[in-house]
Design a protein around this nucleic acid. Structure first.
Lengths: 335, 335
DNA sequence: ATGAAAGCGCTAACAC
DNA sequence: GTGTTAGCGCTTTCAT
């Protein structure tokens, strides 16, 4: 059996209270006994039980991360940065991939709560705001990343999606494109990006693609299917703004399948600037989110919240940045 | 405050023992009181505390996953599949990215143990076998994925790395290449792949690249640097076998940088068949690991281990499969 | 069929 | 400085 505080106390000839005090550096204990206890602990290879200490009201040093899909490079990047910051602060992360499924979201939340996590980070998803509202009511320390919920008072870290969409569309417009389509999913962030895109189009007096069809999943396949449909339509686009790098890749595949060459026949810009963007064929022009910074920031906010070191909630908005690579080019009028 | 079992008991007019019994479906309770208690629980929105129940010796329903790097597409794929299987079985996963750093490995292990996880999955890494041996001695339920430790009695799921390396090299040889270099990291799995590669070369009577230089990290940059060095050497390869898709991408970048075209001037084969392989430029010929299956299998093994449903440890070896895409081509003699 | 009570490993008053 | 003790929320005999 693993040694308990009692074993250590007995072995050291002191009381469990004393041992507890040296573990937590509380109360007063003579340097002599402290050394003694410490050495006994080491000798017995004693590890205090977080479970037991949590039961007395202390932290579990575990936080939950609700994320749409770990296998999506944007989210795995986010997860990694959150994990790193958490590790530095002494916290472990339990990962919950929700696939944007409200049922999974609810189930995972319930599990996390039963396990008394110290806090929860919501990474996107949660179209069902009620779940979040409930969490707030229960005073669960919370922080949101990559998603703004304007109506809620929560610590948030996000990129300015509207601006990102605007940047993407403006870039395309400046290259001479006018028939610019968008591929998006029906999610808050994507809708914001679309607002930005539309704003740029309006500014330029372009009226194209008023009725968008959403893609059902954020993956290459879905992007490909929708892009193919767009490209085969009566008034095909000369440029496509995809709301994330995976969808952008799908668009590129679709174009290629139709015998088009990128960027000669079609310009494509993505979003996120995941690790993918620089390795794809061709390298992807995309709107970069500062993934590492975002992760570090949410984790910081959450921990401050947990420690009650903050009287006011914060909303940190980082700015996206267009990274021009080789998937976009000047529009050349068809012969 | 969250309601406790006492609150429920009081509200239902029964003892906490009774409530406990209906929660766990143990002992005998009349259908009448069961219904009553159940309804009170629902009404109060009662959620039993896993922490408290864990303290009495029950499971925490949490397992630790030690992984080199979440941001690496191979490992995020592994993590996702493990999480899915875990979720189906009622377990949460806490992720620990170690970067192959023995110190981080040790620290994370210690944290997981303090938190009384029910078991641990080791995904690769652990060149320091002592840590693993220690875990076994402490009887911590354990399972290993993507790494074989022949000398240890542990449940393991792995792909036949030797065969994979052999397949990769054989493919290149069959295309007429003779100057076939390898890019690998000094890790167990990579060394196995190299053994397979070497075996294929020996079989074909090829003597090339006897002294390999290892790359220090598994990422595009390192692959690029080493590949560039190889390509600039006195006797440059016409084909490169990279021990994972990231390194392969690096090799492609290096070649391009030197003005070479893939696969015309250089053939490249990767390993893993991550989501990357099909989106890169050009699509990557690579040795596929059945990622989802592997994740499902380890999780199954670990749970069986935890539940003591298995008298003997198992070693499941899955077979890799060469996926030919467009980064490899017939060797054409230089003019 | 139900309940009283001991105990899981630890923390935090409160005594001494 | 150090020890005693009462919980924390739950499980599990063992009575009744």
């Amino acid at each position: 059996m693993k040694p308990t505080i009692y074993d250590v106390a007995r072995e050291a000839g002191v009381s469990i209270a004393t041992v507890s005090k040296v573990i937590n550096n509380t109360g007063r204990i003579s340097e002599k006994t402290r050394k003694l206890v410490l050495s006994v602990m080491k000798e017995m290879n004693y590890q205090p039980s977080v479970v037991a200490s949590a039961l007395t009201g202390k932290s579990t040093y575990t936080i939950g991360l609700m994320i749409p899909d770990l296998a999506n490079p944007f989210f795995s990047g986010i997860a990694r940065s959150i994990e790193d910051r958490g590790h530095a602060l002494g916290y472990n992360i339990v990962i919950c991939s929700t696939d944007y499924d409200p049922e999974k979201e609810a189930k995972y939340i319930s599990l996390l709560l039963q396990k008394s996590v110290d806090g929860i980070i919501l990474a996107s998803g949660f179209e069902n705001v009620e779940t979040v509202r409930e969490l707030i009511k229960q005073k669960v320390p919370l922080a949101i990343i990559a998603r703004e919920i304007p109506s809620l008072e929560v610590d948030t870290v996000a990129v300015d999606d509207f601006l990102g969409g605007y940047q993407a569309a403006s870039h395309l417009i400046s290259l001479g494109h006018r028939r610019i389509a968008i591929i998006a999913r029906d999610l808050w962030s994507n809708r914001e990006r679309m607002r930005g895109y539309r704003h740029a189009l309006d500014e330029a007096g372009i009226d194209y693609g008023r009725d968008v069809e959403y893609v059902m999943e954020s993956n290459v396949e879905s992007g490909k299917a929708l892009a193919e449909k767009l490209l085969r339509s009566a008034d095909p686009p000369t440029a496509i703004f995809a709301c994330n790098d995976l969808l952008a890749m799908g668009a590129i595949h679709a174009a290629r399948r139709l015998g088009m060459s990128i960027p000669r026949d079609l310009s494509v810009v993505g979003f996120d600037n995941t690790a993918w963007a620089s390795v794809t064929d061709p390298p992807l022009t995309t709107v970069a989110q500062p993934i590492r910074d975002m992760g570090t920031h949410v984790m910081n906010l959450l921990i401050q919240e947990i420690n009650g070191e903050k009287k006011h909630k914060q909303r940190i908005v980082l700015l996206p940045e267009l990274v021009v690579r080789e998937s976009t080019a000047k529009y050349v009028r068809d012969m």
